[in-house]
């Protein structure tokens, strides 16, 4: 039987899936990137390997997405290297055929994808500010001394969420400190934070767009039930979260790899190889392009980052 691997390497977490020919997930893995995408992918591959029987399933293609897609794609010899937006849309469509709106809030970026009849019609990503993303929530959790995983449950217990300025991370933070000093209870503040994340998203990312239902909420922050209820309250619509919501990007690029019909031999032993990445500054002109060179066991695989052809000769 043929199998396809999809890997989504985000800033915070790395997700991997193996699907069979019926687009069903047969193995999945989800762990922290911890600033080292190469190591994280090696671990993901190891976990995926344990979940399948290699004698039955033969991996024929790999797809990568996420912010480190190019590096990992080169490393694994991927046939598809896709952006997160398309991958998420394709992945979600395979499970929810009639989806109209995808809300995705991840570690450091957030996006909205609008679909109609199974086709992406519009999308937007946060542009300048990381307010209201996962990293904001986890840094505030640290300030309050609470695990970010418990945020949602605590938020639900609050009856009177406080108002927290949602426009900007810096304002939100000073507002939060102020409210703490004023003596508001912690649960009200946490509920206020969850509200402000939802409010901020709708004001900045979904600005000027009409959110039609069914609405699906994905990304790491979707695990936070407080934010989900905040969205439901503001939008007055049901918001669907999926147990596999975090895997949609990986699923999407695995499906894309399958649809591309290009097969390339893949072996799990790739995780035993030694990968080295090196940043070289090209001195060809005053632009000083930073060229990234990827090496596998001492041999050059690929390089990128150069604006002209001069940079491609680095070893």
């Amino acid at each position: 039987m043929k199998g396809y691997i999809g890997i989504d390497i985000g800033s915070i977490s790395t997700k991997g899936v193996i699907i069979n020919e019926d687009e069903k997930i047969i193995a999945s893995s989800y762990l922290w990137t911890e600033g080292n995408p190469v190591l994280a992918v090696k671990k993901v591959l190891k976990e995926l390997r344990q979940q399948i029987d290699e004698e039955i399933i033969n991996i024929v293609a790999v797809g990568t997405t996420g912010s480190a897609r190019k590096l990992i794609g080169t490393m694994l010899g991927a046939t598809v290297i896709k952006n997160e937006i398309t991958a998420h849309a394709i992945g979600t469509l395979s499970l929810h055929k009639d989806v109209r709106t995808i809300i995705e809030i991840g570690g450091q970026d957030s996006k909205i994808i609008l679909l109609e009849d199974g086709v992406v019609t519009d999308y937007a990503m946060n542009t300048l500010c990381a307010a209201g993303t996962g990293s904001f929530l986890s840094s505030q959790a640290k300030r309050l001394g609470i695990r970010v995983e418990d945020f949602g449950e605590i938020a639900l217990t609050s009856k009177h969420p406080t108002n927290i300025a949602a426009r900007c991370t810096v304002f939100a933070e000073s507002d939060l400190v102020h409210k703490l000093q004023m003596g508001y209870s912690q649960k009200d503040i946490i509920a206020g934070l969850c509200n402000s994340v939802a409010q901020n998203y709708l004001n900045n990312v979904a600005k000027g767009k009409k959110l039609e239902s069914p609405i699906i909420f994905q990304g790491g922050v979707s695990k936070n039930i407080g934010v989900k209820t905040a969205f439901e309250k503001i939008l007055n619509e049901k918001v669907i979260t999926d147990e596999n919501g975090h895997l949609m990007g990986a699923l999407g690029c695995a499906i894309l790899a399958m649809k591309k019909n290009v097969e390339r031999p893949f072996s799990f032993n790739v995780s035993n190889s030694d990968f080295e990445t090196k940043a070289v500054e090209c001195k060809g002109c005053p632009n000083h392009c930073e060229v990234i060179v990827v090496k596998k066991d001492g041999e050059k695989l690929d390089s990128w980052g150069n604006r002209c052809d001069k940079g491609s000769y680095f070893k």
Binding site: K82, N83, E84, I85, T86, V120, T121, D122, Y123, M125
Partner: peptide, 10 residues
């Protein structure tokens, strides 16, 4: 690149 690629796919 991400934005342009997604726009092209769209």
């Amino acid at each position: 690149k991400t934005r342009i690629e997604a726009f092209y796919d769209l």
